[in-house]
Amino acid sequence: MADLESSVPSMVDGLKRGQRKVLFCSFKRNFVEEAFVTELIGYASAHSAYSKQSLASIIIGMAQEFVGSNNISLLEPGGLFGTRNLGGKDAGSTKDLYTRLPPVTRLIFPKDDDILLNYLNEDGQSIEPSWHIPIIPMVLVNGSEDVGTGYVPNYNPRDIIANLKRMLNKEPIIPMDPWYKGFQGSLTKTRSKETGVTYTITGVIEEVDCTMLTITELPVRCWSADYEHFLKSMCPHKEKENGKGMDKDKEPPFLEGYRSRCSHADVDFEVILSEQNMNIAKQEGLEKKFKLTTTIGPTMYLFDSHGKIRKYDSPEDVLEEFFTLRLEFYARRKAVMVENIRKEVL
């Protein structure tokens, strides 16, 4: 069960247990002033059994902002928290990183709801709640991915809020498609009886002239360094130092070369090839030939509000269950506030 809590997020707050511990400690310490990540790690480790290394990884992940990571970061990054070059694995040392709670986090997780939460107990000490209660379903905003338990894409917060307003007005909700902040490619919805709803995510490739292409976007979670290795594999190889040339039976290189102008935030490859190979690539399809498409299919296994793992068939299922719970907590918050006002008056 502990392994599942570490890898499966809650439908309610969108957090796995380690992330929830970090957020709880950030709220408890009122971590609004910028400080070293090591300071937050030290405080969180004193309130949990997680190792400092695990907490460092969790904190860095919660603060990342590159394309394919968070749509809304719950911690503010100060320093190199990782880039799309290596999918965040190029983050700097925690002793060189700063973070804090950005104002948006407390807007999403209102302080007035803290008193309503079910706080867990560990060795006689009150620790983090079983879940926080945000004003929008953060599991849809930032998504979640785990090899063993499923995949929840990211969705546009504006689409989520618009549907919540429709539900308040008793209007039908509009189906939502995945959305990744900063992504410049395209996303196409497909449906089949075997796989259900899937999405094809495509990068951006353009023909400059008869021997040159530019690639300015990669599929979501295809990292620039990995893609550069792929391009390199299509280019001519230098002869071996022992003087032996290339294997005569080996297929000749498809590209004549490439240039990378990628930054930590943007993709920019320039690809050079012969006119003949350009025609071959166009016949096959540029996106297919250069592996610029990927397919995702949401498989949403999440803890529900009762702590049981449940499979959600669509983001709208998550939204509807969240809406009912959130509305209940608005009523409970109002009752507490009214009671406090009554006590003050009396």
Rank of each mutant, 00 (worst) to 15 (best):
L4M: 06
L15E: 03
K16S: 03
L23M: 13
E33F: 13
E33D: 13
E33N: 14
A35Q: 15
T38H: 11
E39Y: 14
A44Q: 04
A46I: 06
A46W: 04
S48Q: 08
K52Y: 03
K52Q: 14
Q53H: 05
S54W: 10
A56Q: 08
A56K: 01
I60V: 15
Q64L: 10
F66A: 08
S73Y: 03
E76W: 11
N85S: 10
G87M: 00
G88E: 03
D90T: 06
A91P: 06
S93I: 07
Y98C: 08
R100Q: 11
R106P: 03
I108H: 02
K111I: 12
Y119S: 06
E122C: 05
G124H: 07
Q125P: 00
I127F: 05
E128C: 09
I135N: 00
V139E: 00
N142E: 04
S144R: 05
T149Q: 06
T149L: 01
G150A: 02
N154D: 04
I161K: 11
N163Q: 09
L164C: 08
M167T: 04
L168W: 13
N169C: 12
I173D: 06
P175W: 03
P175V: 11
P178E: 07
Y180T: 13
Y180S: 08
G182H: 07
Q184I: 11
S192V: 00
G196E: 03
I201F: 00
T202F: 02
T202M: 07
V204Y: 02
E207H: 06
T214Q: 13
E217S: 10
P219S: 09
P219H: 05
V220W: 05
E228S: 10
S233R: 11
K248W: 01
E251T: 14
P252W: 09
P253V: 12
L255P: 05
E256S: 09
S260Y: 07
E270N: 04
I272M: 14
S274W: 06
Q283K: 15
E284Q: 15
E287P: 04
K288Q: 14
K289V: 08
K289F: 15
K291L: 12
D304F: 07
D304R: 02
R310I: 09
S314N: 09
L319E: 00
L319V: 01
E320R: 12
E321F: 07
L327W: 08
Y330N: 12
Y330P: 02
V336D: 03
N340T: 10
R342E: 14
E344T: 11
V345I: 14
